[in-house]
Nucleic acid binder design. Structure first.
Length: 334
RNA sequence: GCUGAGGUGGCGGAGUGGACAAUCGCAGCAGUCUGUAAAACUGCCGGCCGACAGGCCUACCCAAGUUCGAAUCUUGGCCUCAGCA
C-alpha cells in the first residue's frame, strides 16, 4: 500500500537486514557482516527487548559482557535508556529496553529503531538489523501508515468483553469498508477487529493526518534451513538454555513481576509445569522444543510472503562469503 | 484366583441400536497478518476419486451372533486398571 517515494532508493540511508526463523544462525552471520562492513547490530526481537529474559529469549550476550549505557530516547512521555552489549567487539542495540511488566508495541519499536539506526549511520557505521520478529522488521522496511494511531486502552478493556459478532457490528457502523477489506480469518479475530475499530475511529477524528515515516535502502538477507536440520538445532538450544538456568529465570520473573506481558516467552509454560510438578524435566524440554519448532514454522510463513528477501541456505558451505559478496556489491555500487 | 471398572482415530476423551468417518481438546498440516506478533485468528486433519457437490473403501480390542441396520445389544476370547486375596 506504500506509494513509491520520490527519493530514489540509492539516496536513502542504507541498512542491512538479517532475518530468519529461530535457531537459523542469524546472529553469527550478522556479526560476521558487521566486522566486514564496520557495522553495528540492531535487534529486531519482541522478547529480547525486555530485561530479565536473557536465557529464554536467547540473547547472545557473551558471559562477562556488561551493558554499556548509550543514549536516552523519548517516546510519548517515556524515557528509554538504551544500552548495548558487545558480541565479539560488535555492539548490539535494543536488548533490555524495558521491564517485562510493560507492553511493547511496534510503534515504540519502530521509533527506537529509527533513532538507533540514525545514530549508527551518523557515526559512519552500517546498521544491521537482526531478528526473527517479522512485524518489527516490516515496521522499518515499510512503515505502516497507521502505526502511530494510539491504542485506546480503556475501550480495549471494554471491547475485550464483546463477542466477535458485536465487534463486527461496531466496526461496520464506523467503517463498513474496513470490515469488508478484512479476510475471513481476520474477521474472526477479536484483536484485529478491536484494532480496526480503533483505527477507524481515530481516522474519523483526525482527517488527513499521516505519520511521518523515514525509509531506508535495505539489503534484506534471509537465512533458512530445512525444518529437520532446524529442529535438531532447536532441540540442542533448549537443552543448553535449560542448563544455563532457564528454570531459575522463570522463577525470578514470577517473583519480580505480577503481570507479565513481556513474559509470553516460549518455554515459560512448560517450565512452570515442571516447577509445579506436572511434568518431568524431559517432558518439559520436549514441550518447549515443540513450541519452538512450531514457532519457527510460523515465522517462515510470514517471511515467505516478503518478496524482498534474498534467501540463503545455511546448510550450504560458504554462505557467509556469498552473502558478503552480495552485500559488498550492493554497498559499493551506489 | 475372586470382585468391580474398562478397552474408540497419534494422544487424551465423548458417544451407548439408525441423523457416526464418529462431539471436543491436544498434537500435526496449510494459511492469515500493518500499535499485543514468541501474539491472536482461520481452514484441513482415516484412505482413494473430485474444483465443488458428492461418491467409493476400510474403521470404535478379536471372533461369532441378534437385527432391515451395531462403536453402541448378546455370547465367547484376549488385554488393562482398581479393590479383595
Amino acid at each position: 500500500m506504500q506509494k513509491a517515494s520520490a527519493t530514489p532508493d540509492h539516496h536513502l540511508p542504507r541498512v542491512i537486514i538479517v532475518c530468519g526463523p529461530t535457531a537459523s544462525g542469524k546472529t553469527n552471520l550478522a556479526v560476521s557482516l558487521a566486522k566486514r562492513f564496520n557495522g553495528e547490530l540492531v535487534s529486531a526481537d519482541s522478547r529480547q527487548i525486555y530485561k530479565c529474559t536473557d536465557i529464554l529469549s536467547g540473547k547472545d550476550i557473551p558471559s562477562g559482557a556488561g551493558a554499556i549505557p548509550r543514549k536516552s530516547v523519548q517516546y510519548r512521555d517515556e524515557e528509554y535508556a538504551l544500552v548495548t552489549y558487545d558480541i565479539d567487539t560488535v555492539p548490539v542495540w535494543l536488548y533490555d529496553v524495558m521491564t517485562p511488566d510493560r507492553q511493547c508495541s511496534i510503534s515504540l519499536y519502530q521509533s527506537l529503531a529509527q533513532t538507533v539506526i540514525g545514530d549508527i549511520a551518523s557515526r559512519g557505521k552500517l546498521p544491521i538489523i537482526v531478528g526473527g520478529a517479522g512485524l518489527y522488521i516490516n515496521a522499518i522496511v515499510r512503515t505502516p501508515e497507521t502505526i502511530n494511531i494510539p491504542p485506546n486502552l480503556i475501550a480495549r478493556d471494554y471491547r475485550n468483553t464483546l463477542t466477535v459478532e458485536a465487534l463486527q457490528d461496531d466496526l461496520a457502523a464506523i467503517s463498513p469498508d474496513r470490515l469488508a477489506m478484512m479476510n475471513a480469518s481476520d474477521r474472526q479475530n477479536p484483536r484485529r477487529l478491536i484494532r480496526a475499530i480503533e483505527i477507524a475511529q481515530w481516522q474519523a477524528e483526525h482527517k488527513g493526518e499521516a505519520p511521518e515515516t523515514r525509509r531506508f535502502d535495505c539489503f534484506w538477507v534471509g537465512i533458512r534451513r530445512p525444518i529437520d536440520a532446524l529442529s535438531v538445532r532447536i532441540r540442542t538450544r533448549v537443552k543448553e538454555r535449560w542448563d544455563a538456568g532457564a528454570v531459575g529465570e522463570v522463577k525470578r520473573l514470577k517473583v519480580l513481576y505480577h503481570a507479565l506481558p513481556g513474559a509470553h516467552l516460549l518455554g515459560f509454560v512448560p517450565i512452570m509445569k515442571y516447577i509445579d510438578g506436572e511434568v518431568s524435566e524431559a517432558e518439559a524440554k520436549d514441550l518447549w522444543t515443540k513450541d519452538e519448532i512450531a514457532y519457527a514454522k510460523r515465522q517462515m510463513v510470514w517471511f515467505r510472503r516478503q518478496k524482498d528477501i534474498r534467501w540463503y541456505d545455511a546448510e550450504e558451505k560458504g554462505i557467509e562469503r556469498q552473502v558478503e559478496k552480495d552485500v559488498r556489491q550492493w554497498y559499493t555500487n551506489r
